[in-house]
Computed example of a mutant assay.
Amino acid sequence: MTMFISPMLLEKREEPFNDKTYLFEPKVDGHRLLFSFIDGKTTLYTRNKNMITHKYPELLTHPFTKSVILDGEVAALNQSDIIDFEEIMIRFSASRSEKIKRLQTEIPVIFVVFDVLYYDGKDVRRLKLEDRKALLDEILPPHPVFQKILSVEGDGKMLYQAIQSSPFREGMVAKKKGTRYESKRSKSWLKIVNYRYDEVFIQGFRKNEFGLLLSFDQEGHQTAGILELGMPREAKSYYFQKIKDIKIKEDERFVYTHPVHCRVKCRNLTHKGLLRSPSFVSF
C-alpha cells in the first residue's frame, strides 16, 4: 500500500513581520517532497504526485518503524555548506541508476522535514500546527539526512535577518498557529522570499516569445540572463514604445537595441553568474 496526500501550498507576502500568533521557519531552497512509509514500503513523491523514490536512495534508510507521511523539502549543500538549488536540480534530473549512485557521493542531500501528516495508522492533519510539530519532535530523532526545520515563535523579523547569513538564504515561511493542515493553497502559510535586487540593462528582446536580454553593464559585455517574469502589460507597452527608434540589428532569434536601464529582482545568481529567474521591478 502506498499513500499520497496533496501538500499544503503557500501564499506570498512581501515583507517580514512579527506576530505572536505565527511560527516562523527558514525557507529551504530545494524542492517539495512527500515521504511515505506505509506497510514497510517507502515511497517518495513530488508535490504533483510524481513518484521519485529511485532518485534519492539515501532517504530509504530512515529511523521509522511505524507508518508515517512527512512533508518537507529535499535539498543539497554545496562546498560552502550553502543550500544550492542548482545542485538539487542535478540530483533531480538524474535517471540512470549508475549516475544516481555516483551523485550520492558528489551531491549528498538532506530532507528538511517541517510537518507530519499521518502516523501509526492515523491521519493527523486535523491536529493544530503546534501539536503536529510536537509529534514530529517525538517521532524523529537526530539523523544525518532527516532534519527537522527550526521554528521561531513570534519574531519573524529577527529570523529573516538571521537567515541572510545562514545556509537558508532563500527566505522565510510564516505559519499560523492553531491551524490544521489543508491540502490546498492557504493564507495560513505565507512565504517571504529573500530577493536579490539588481540594476541592469535591457539589450534587446526575443522574437518568438517574450524575453528581454539583460546585461550587468551598459555596453552589454557582462550577460545577466533573460527576463521573462513579472513585467506588467503597461511596462511592456512602455518598453516597446521606447525602443522603436533605438534598434541596432537583429538575427533569427533576437532584436538588439541600445541599452534601456531597469531594476529587477531574483532569488540569487546561478553558477554561471546569471540572474536566477529575474523578475521585473521598475524602469
Score class of each variant (00 low, 15 high):
I149D: 01
L150V: 04
S151T: 15
V152I: 14
E153Y: 01
E153W: 02
E153N: 15
D155W: 09
G156V: 03
K157R: 09
K157P: 00
K157N: 13
M158P: 00
Q161L: 02
Q161G: 05
A162H: 08
S165G: 04
P167Q: 13
R169Y: 02
M172H: 10
M172T: 08
V173H: 04
K176A: 03
K176P: 04
K177I: 11
G178M: 08
Y181K: 07
E182V: 15
S183G: 07
S183A: 15
K184R: 15
K184A: 14
K184Q: 12
R185Q: 15
R185K: 15
K187Y: 05
S188M: 05
W189K: 09
W189L: 13
W189R: 03
L190M: 15
L190F: 08
K191I: 11
I192L: 05
V193G: 00
D198S: 12
E199C: 04
I202D: 00
I202G: 03
Q203D: 03
Q203C: 05
G204A: 06
F205A: 11
K207V: 08
N208P: 01
E209K: 12
G211A: 09
L212K: 04
L213S: 07
F216G: 00
Q218R: 14
Q218Y: 11
I226M: 09
E228G: 09
E228I: 08
L229M: 09
L229E: 13
M231L: 12
M231C: 08
